[in-house]
């Protein structure tokens, strides 16, 4: 499984992309975030406030119950801030 991190999540995790092989019990986005948070202090810091973390699975917005599988691309990022001036 490929995991991508954007904006400040990348800074806290310390990488923009990693390939992981979570155990069988990790079948949903929520379970994946729990598992990722335990990988390093940086991961834990990035994921400590889940309200600030958006998730896309294969480039589609996902929720905590969205299934994840071995060949998925999962992206973690903060709420979007595109467009003109806020």
């Amino acid at each position: 499984m490929k995991v991508l991190y954007f904006a400040w999540l990348r800074g806290r995790v310390g990488t923009g992309e990693e390939t992981i092989a979570p155990p069988d019990g990790v079948a949903t986005v929520g379970q994946l975030l729990d598992w990722l948070a335990a990988r390093s202090p940086g991961h834990a810091e990035a994921l400590k406030d889940r309200a600030l973390v958006r998730v896309a699975v294969n480039q589609e917005f996902a929720g905590p119950n969205t299934p994840v599988a071995a060949d998925d691309e999962v992206a973690l990022f903060p709420p979007m801030t595109g467009g003109g001036a806020p």
Binding site: F6, A7, W8, A56, A75, F77, P78, P79, M80, T81, G82, G83, G84, P86
Partner: peptide
């Protein structure tokens, strides 16, 4: 433009006097 701001995956990193700062999304958006 309203939908783009909250649905397109862009993030702004501002270069300020106080250093770089990620722009936080606004509830009003």
């Amino acid at each position: 433009i309203d939908w783009l701001k909250t649905k397109a995956p862009f993030w702004k990193l501002e270069d300020t006097d106080a250093g770089p700062r990620w722009v936080a999304a606004k509830e009003s958006d």
